[in-house]
Design a binder for these strands. Structure first.
Lengths: 248, 248
DNA sequence: CAGTGGTCTAGACCACGTC
DNA sequence: ACGTGGTCTAGACCACTGT
């Protein structure tokens, strides 16, 4: 954090981002570089403020923003923790399929395939790789309440996730695995949703006739620095569940 | 705003919400009751603080929250304004259909029907009315870049929107009309998205064969107090556009 | 009890838009 | 020049968690 030359009247260098944004950027780096792992308690506001030579209020504003972005979790009386990709968070932030009656639940997964390949044009574009770069392709069938409702295809860079799934088993909660095993924190993403006829491959998996309408959720997930790290296409039966979005 | 008995050490009554939340609630009431209409400049932070007997910082925190909720728009050097439902805001907050190539645009509308009727079970449940209550049903066909892509069905309470559309023409931007003509501010909503086969009624409107997949966006829009005020079902062709959602 | 985040206040200066 | 929101600081007390 830049030290202020003035004694009692700190000034912001013109053209620079506000102090609290600089603090935020610095703290995000600490998470991205693995100094602060998911789940750990970070220093108190006063400690961070003293270390960086800014006031507690400035640190607070940075922490508040990061809390809104789901990067931190604050607990009064305990402290501030780096957010983890536990199922509750994913249900809230990333998994927007909810049953039409009843509470949202985290889906089960059956791994259908996990192979290494060369990136095709779509994969290269989505993940910002050169065509032909090594990627890992995963296919899963996911169930809610015992019903297979999602056929999912995932592509990631084999360079970023070396030997992902080579041990045969992949955990159901992939984003926690990305963080714990590879130090890659998924922080956000962009989904494009369409209605399509079920393909000949997916229809039997989902108990449909070929051509029946399915919901495609096309997601590019991004890391803390905004770089794309996963391309996921989920084909969903929306007979008794929906893609839910809150407008706020 | 509750006056504090203490002279130099304001206290919060136990069990009450924080002061800035009470300020927020009070300011939202002023908008909901029409004292502050959409688009108007509200008093400065210092004026509100003086009027309510709280500090400027407390007012600021309330205004900041309302800005995040898209209820206010702040402009440095000018002041704070009550948010309007202009096309830019709707495009950002409510209309999540975007073309797969190119920038989002606000759709054109052709009014197909506008009739008064008695609420059926679904309408009563969505709008929190008793079955049989008077409602107004609207059907529109909406286009992007000259292509009909959305067949839309809207239901509102006839009590809340008396004689809506009785003059024959309805503006394309309905939410601005709700606010200007009826003083009802749409503040949020919840959308449930499904993939369905096109009905015999919608398919020809959208240039599809009956049974072709369409995207259903089922939206209940809510007013400032959280009460449901509009039920909207949009059937979309997603051949060259998508329902876009940012995960943050 | 000590330590944490949460709230509230007060005052200073900066950046921007208007007159 | 003036008033606005935007940033930064400093210090107080409250509410909660753990010992």
């Amino acid at each position: 954090m830049p030290k202020r030359p003035e004694v009692s009247a700190p000034r912001k260098a013109p053209g620079l981002s506000p102090l609290y944004r600089q603090v935020r950027t610095l703290l995000i780096q600490r998470i991205a570089e693995g100094h602060w792992r998911p789940g750990v308690l970070i220093p108190s506001e006063m400690q961070i403020a003293a270390e960086l030579g800014v006031s507690q209020g400035t640190v607070r504003k940075a922490l508040d923003e990061m809390t809104v972005e789901n990067l931190l979790v604050r607990q009064q009386g305990r402290g501030t923790f780096v957010a983890q990709h536990d199922e509750a968070r994913i249900l809230f932030q990333f998994f927007k399929i909810a049953p039409d009656t009843g509470e949202p639940v985290f889906p089960e997964s059956i791994l259908r395939a996990c192979v290494e390949a060369a990136a095709d044009a779509g994969e290269a574009a989505a993940l910002n790789l050169r065509a032909g770069a090594p990627v890992i392709r995963i296919a899963r069938l996911r169930s809610l309440a015992g019903q297979a409702v999602i056929s999912e295809y995932i592509t990631v860079s084999a360079q970023l996730f070396p030997e992902l799934g080579h041990d045969g088993a992949l955990p159901n909660n992939l984003y926690a695995h990305y963080a714990n095993r590879f130090g890659v924190t998924v922080a956000g993403g962009r989904e494009r949703v369409k209605a399509l006829p079920a393909t000949a491959e997916d229809a039997p998996l989902l108990g449909l006739e070929a051509g029946a309408p399915v919901l495609l959720i096309d997601r590019v997930a991004t890391a803390l620095d905004g770089a794309p790290v996963e391309w996921r296409r989920s084909y969903c039966v929306t007979e008794s569940c929906s893609y839910v979005s809150l407008l706020r």
